[in-house]
Design a protein around this nucleic acid. Structure first.
Length: 435
RNA sequence: GCGGCUAUAGUUCAGUGGCAGAACGCCGCUCUGUGGCAGCGGAUGUCGUGGGUUCGAACCCCACUAGCCGCCCCA
């Protein structure tokens, strides 16, 4: 019978790697808490229209990368509704913000999420069809200060802190401003006009973009088109006074906090909802990601709530590709330390199995991580197994059980000592701290 | 979605038309209360799946599937 495998682009996460995932998520939660963020959990699927309106009908994500199906519920209201596995989480968070009238508190909302997203792309290293994102959003009514440059800088400074605490080395922050919705529209129109006479010289993709979403022409890496792209109007010349001042304030705050960045005028995020500040954190070559070197991205979305039929609620957010973060950490870690237990309990002979299990029970109750061997195995095998799992092995033989004095071997030091039963837990805990 | 590379033991791989291999790992013995070394022995397997060519296919051909690399796009 053919075995059933995880479907293309999905994968199982197993120990010991899951320990790293938990550590990453715990670190993120800890950092988010210090900046006043609370957790939000939105559904894994939403009405297709949410992404069409929020993310943008013309984006690749919506036009060809979504898992979409038609609901077949019995109720009239369910029938035929188009549903989609979420390809990103910002639209869902803003939908929840509107639906639960979070604006009514008048307070700034700071929300973070950790969870899987789904895109039907060609799988590659660091790019899966079910992938995990750690993200956060800051939004609220204008009078809550949600459109302040302070918030942009705070989010960026928080990300720098998070990456540093995780131990990511060599990250770089690329920063840009795409202006207000108006600025963006004027710039987009200017680009379209400037592209009109020259676009026929460009590659097929860029010709299409010139029509549908001219901003994305700037993202193109097509070598033959670079000359034309360099000659196009610059976004900086189209920023209104407000946007320009906003961008200057973001940069000033980052300078004050000592967060390094480089301004990249061609950094235009692909999603339609971005306004003003856009950014991306990348890691150097050799960090395990190949050319997929973007670790996280985000930006400001002052008009998204209104695009979704909600009140005006400027906001800024980001999403970290957790799969990529983990790959980077794995590549940057020296030698991965396997999960170590505090001790391995080795019974001598099956007759000692009950006594060994009882000892393990006591030590585990004291908070120690313990594995128990099997008395049916020869002592040699117990040693070999113990050495793979822990630094210490406790021998449980007839002598030990009778005398209450247990033989404890420490592999790293090659030492062996006898410790009374009552002092075992303490001795193992103490050694753990001192080593 | 487009282009390329790859798929053989648990792992890394060799094998280019004639008996399915190596290293590491695993199991056993030397050695039933002190392992890691050494010696000896053992099991590894639909050669990714399906079809075709051939007396004969892991090897040549076709299709499919999956992984990886690049592009597109994005985290």
């Amino acid at each position: 019978m053919a075995i059933i495998k995880a479907v293309r682009g999905t994968r199982d996460l197993l120990p010991p790697e899951t320990e790293l995932w938990n550590r990453v998520e715990a670190t993120a939660r800890s950092v988010f808490a210090r900046y006043g963020f609370g957790e939000i959990r939105t559904p894994l699927f939403e009405a297709t229209e949410l992404f069409a309106r929020g993310v943008g009908e013309e984006t690749d994500i919506v036009s060809k990368e979504m898992y979409t199906w038609e609901d077949r519920g019995r109720a009239e209201s369910d029938k035929g509704q188009s549903l989609t596995l979420r390809p990103e989480n910002t639209a869902g968070v803003v939908r929840a913000y509107i639906e639960h009238h979070l604006a009514d508190s008048g307070m700034l909302q700071k929300l973070f999420y950790i969870g899987p997203q789904f895109r039907r792309e060609r799988p590659q290293r660091g790019r899966y069809r079910q992938f995990w994102q750690i993200g956060a959003e800051v939004l609220g009514p204008q009078f809550s200060g949600s459109d302040s440059a302070l918030r942009d800088a705070e989010v960026l400074e928080m990300l720098a802190t998070l990456l540093n605490e995780l131990g990511i080395k060599g990250w770089r922050l690329a920063l840009n401003s795409v202006g207000s919705t108006d600025d963006r529209q004027r710039y987009s129109a200017a680009l379209r006009e400037a592209l009109q006479p020259v676009k026929h010289k460009m590659c097929e993709d860029n010709q299409r973009r010139a029509e549908t979403n001219p901003l994305r022409v700037l993202d193109s890496k097509e070598p033959n088109d670079q000359e034309i792209i360099d000659a196009l109007p610059k976004i900086g010349d189209f920023l209104g006074e407000d946007s320009r001042a906003h961008f200057e304030q973001v940069k000033a705050a980052l300078d004050a906090c000592g967060v390094p960045y480089t301004v990249d005028p061609r950094l235009v995020r692909g999603l339609d909802y971005y306004t003003r500040t856009t950014f991306e954190f990348t890691v150097p070559d050799g960090s395990g990601l190949g050319t997929q070197n973007a670790l996280l991205g985000g930006g400001r979305y002052d008009g998204l709530s209104e695009m979704l039929g909600g009140p005006k609620a400027p906001g800024i957010g980001f999403a970290i590709g957790e799969d990529r973060l983990i790959l980077t950490l794995l590549a940057q870690l020296e030698a991965k330390e396997p999960a170590r237990l505090d001790a391995f309990v080795a019974p001598m002979g099956v007759a000692q199995n009950p006594a060994a299990l009882k000892l393990a029970q006591e030590l585990r109750a004291a908070g120690l991580r313990i594995e128990v061997g099997d008395g049916a195995f020869r002592l040699r095998k117990s040693f070999e197994t113990a050495d793979k799992l822990a630094d210490k092995m406790i021998i449980v033989g007839e002598d030990e059980v009778n005398s209450g004095l247990f033989t404890v071997k420490t592999f790293s030091k090659g030492e062996q000592e006898k410790i009374p039963r009552a002092e075992l837990a303490e001795a193992l805990s103490f050694k753990k701290v001192s080593s």
